[in-house]
Design a protein around this nucleic acid. Structure first.
Length: 761
DNA sequence: TTAGGGTTAG
């Protein structure tokens, strides 16, 4: 039996009275039924289809309702035209769906036409009138709604409640209250739900007084003992910031419930009263309040913020005892709690107990892997859930962008980017900013720029991300230009923006500009400099060889200098070979972190260069006593998806003269391998888990010029692009790039290598 | 009616 597919994708037998889709409505007595979906049964009406008047157009009205339910406004209009031609009336019941459709689509003019048509037909009733009222409210035409409310002969409490509720949903609380007062004047007796609707919309401290007035009104009319009203009042006081009122309301409840208690716990956590939240939870348990699926999120959040592993574990045990840990609403907050407490193995186990993990659960797990530095595992999990058709969300993608960023995995990053676009899951601003950083850390500052340009209205974070991207690539002038542009666009910089700017200055030797930024932060931009900003300034001076100035900043700090302050200074001491100041810095570093192996290595080398062999030997002895070793350097390059890893025998180059070392640096081997194994026109991207030295920086630059290849070297602290097009001649090498551009220090400012990890063998 | 995730640096 042949069949025809109609435009709804529904198969109808060709024995049905089918007219092919897009067929122009003919002059036949019968209407186009081709679009009737399968769920509108034709069986019962089939025999009567050709009967006179068709039970007053029953089938046509059913079809009309079907189209309206599907929101097919144009088809509805066409179908009504054809019904009119056949003089088939629209049933009052159909109007209900027509008004619902107009409300859902916000089609005010169509709604008004249907309203007018109904008035002409004089077929209205109270129920339909309330539908019309709802339609005007859904279309946010409150003027039309109130005019109609005034005109209604048979308006009832429901009519008033419709408009009052619509006003509250739109946040027009004053209007809602005005209408309530009008209603009372008309002698309409309110019910509890109308008060409940009103109270739930009081969500701001400015509404507290009004809330109190309504509360007293409720007590007066005797609704205050109602369970749902009591809960609404407590939550209203929480939202209005009056926790004392909420506590009194909750404590006075005839029977406490989880909704009121959870609301109050949210209030406590917002007011940083996390201990009170835990106490309330404990009271809920002891008083036998029935728990629901919302409670655990908030109580475990309080534990996480307090870092209270003990209480969190007790709650976990409670859940296990009551068989709740497999519930997604319990298991997911547990995963999140353990991740925030850096207990990643516990987090993984909690995840595995969840019977049906949802996107929140996966998101918490992936975040855990990212936070523990296991980016490869995060990517693995992501790839698994993609193939399993797990529901994904923008937060998961944002996390994965970070994982790709940390792993410098451009191939995965670009694929995930395309995937997120296809699924519409790039989180507005946050996901977009994460993508800027991802491309930047993968060595693609141009892609980062493109990602930035696609943002419709960049916020401070997005601007900061692109500024930091340029700073990271040693492009200080572009970073500073972007900062000016950011100001022109009216976006205010934040504390991190200045970190990015100061980093840009330190990588390019812009001492004067760096000082200006630090000095103007507070006065001009209202951002208070923190220890991190001063540390950046120490780095600016140190990299520029101005060690006395750097030391002066440390000595005049409004804070206690931290490890970073001294390590930045020590980095500069190594570049300038200044043993005297290095000794001051090292003393302080050893005081704050006696296990920092890089400092021992620098001090050994500085003593050795100065011919102070006894002191050098002493440093070596200290290292041996503390069982410390220099971090093994490793470089790698990915060719055809395969990781090629290069490690220079550490025993050979450890503590050796620099001249000899230069032949042994692992990134040079990786670059050489890239030159041999990749097509001439492709860029070469090399990774290193520690910092590259200035010699390797120069080496890469020269290789780039000689071979005409673009080279990107990403080390533990930064990324450097070497593009032959940037250098016109060898002679320009020393002017194009400031001597203290990225990778000019062996140790840099001492940031730990948290981003790059050597691939497993 | 009550909740939980994320972004920008070294």
């Amino acid at each position: 039996m042949s069949s025809i597919t109609c435009d709804c994708g529904v198969l109808l037998s060709n024995s049905s009275p089918v007219v092919v889709a897009n067929h122009k409505i003919n002059d036949n007595k019968h209407i186009n039924f081709a679009q009737i979906p399968s769920w509108v049964s034709l069986k019962s009406s089939h025999s009567s289809l050709r009967t006179h008047q068709n039970q007053q157009g029953l089938v046509e009205n059913l079809h009309l309702i079907s189209l309206a339910k599907q929101g097919k406004l144009t088809k509805v209009q066409e179908f009504i035209t054809s019904m009119d031609k056949e003089a088939i009336p629209i049933h009052p019941r159909s109007y209900e769906y027509l008004f619902k459709m107009c409300g859902a689509l916000g089609a005010l003019s169509d709604g008004k036409l249907f309203h007018k048509r109904l008035q002409i037909m004089a077929e209205s009733n109270k129920y339909i009138d309330n539908c019309i009222l709802q339609m005007y409210c859904d279309c946010k035409s409150f003027t039309a709604a109130e005019i109609f409310l005034d005109e209604m002969d048979d308006r009832d409490l429901f009519s008033w409640a419709t408009v009052i509720s619509a006003y509250t949903k739109e946040g027009c609380v004053d209007e809602a209250v005005r209408l309530l007062v009008r209603m009372l004047r008309f002698g309409i007796i309110p019910n509890s739900s109308i008060f409940s609707t009103l109270i739930t919309s009081f969500a701001d401290p400015s509404m507290l007084d009004l809330g109190k007035q309504i509360h007293s009104q409720l007590i007066r009319v005797g609704f205050s003992a109602d369970d749902s009203i009591e809960t609404s009042i407590s939550n209203m006081y929480v939202k209005c910031g009056w926790l004392y009122g909420a506590e009194v309301a909750t404590n006075n409840m005839t029977r406490k419930n989880a909704v009121a208690c959870t609301g109050l716990m949210v209030g406590y956590t917002q007011a940083a009263r996390h201990r009170d939240a835990l106490l309330l939870f404990s009271r809920m348990i002891s008083e036998g309040v029935e728990l629901d699926e919302f409670v655990f999120s908030i109580v475990l959040k309080a534990c996480a913020v307090l870092g209270d592993l003990h209480t969190g574990r007790k709650i976990h045990n409670f859940c296990v005892k009551h068989g709740l840990e497999s519930e997604v609403s319990v298991g997911t907050p547990l995963v999140d709690f353990y991740v925030k407490c850096a207990r990643f193995e516990d987090a993984r186990q909690a995840f595995e107990s969840i019977r049906e993990p949802n996107d929140f659960s996966w998101s918490a797990l992936i975040a855990g892997y990212c936070q523990s530095g296991r980016f490869d595992r995060a990517l693995e999990v992501f790839k698994t859930i993609r193939s399993k058709e797990v529901l994904l969300n923008p937060f998961i993608y944002t996390n994965i962008f970070q994982a790709c960023s940390a792993a410098s995995d451009l191939i995965s990053g670009a694929q995930v980017h395309a995937d997120a676009i296809k699924k519409g899951l790039v989180a507005y601003l946050s996901g977009e900013s994460a993508m800027i950083t991802m491309y930047s850390k993968c060595g693609k500052v141009d892609y980062a720029h493109q990602a930035f340009f696609t943002i419709e209205k960049p916020d401070a974070v997005a601007w900061t991300a692109i500024i930091c991207a340029h700073a990271y690539h040693g492009k200080a002038s572009e970073a500073l230009r972007l900062f000016k542009e950011m100001q022109r666009s009216g976006v205010r910089p934040n504390a991190v923006t200045f970190i990015g700017l100061l980093n840009a200055c330190s990588h390019s030797g812009l001492v004067k500009e760096g000082k200006q930024f630090l000095d103007s932060m507070n006065d001009k931009y209202g951002v208070n400099p923190t220890i991190d900003h001063y540390n950046c300034m120490i780095d600016v001076y140190s990299r520029a060889g101005l060690l006395q100035e750097a030391l002066e900043v440390i000595r005049s700090l409004p804070f206690e200098p931290d490890l970073m302050s001294w390590k930045s200074l020590l980095g500069g001491c190594w570049s300038s070979r200044n043993l005297e100041i290095a000794m001051i810095a090292a003393d302080n570093i050893f005081r704050l972190d006696p296990l920092d192996s890089a400092t021992y290595v620098i001090m050994f080398n500085l003593y050795a260069l100065a011919g102070k062999w006894d002191e050098a030997a002493q440093v070596r002895k200290m290292m041996a006593e503390r069982n410390l070793r220099k971090e093994v350097s490793c470089s790698w390059i990915i060719v055809k998806g395969k990781v090629h890893r290069f490690v220079v025998d550490d025993a050979l180059c450890y503590f050796r003269e620099r001249k000899e070392q230069l032949l042994d640096h692992s990134e040079r081997l990786a670059i050489a391998y890239g030159l041999i194994c990749t097509p001439a026109e492709t860029p070469i991207m090399v990774f290193k888990n520690t910092r590259s030295c200035k010699d390797c920086h120069d080496f890469a630059k020269r290789v780039s010029i000689v071979t005409g290849r673009e080279l990107v070297v990403r080390d533990a602290n930064s990324t450097a692009d070497f593009n032959p097009a940037l250098y016109t001649s060898i002679a320009s090498l020393h002017t194009e790039c400031h001597p203290s551009s990225p990778m000019s220090h062996v140790v840099g400012n001492g940031a730990t290598c948290k981003a790059l990890f050597p691939p497993r063998l």
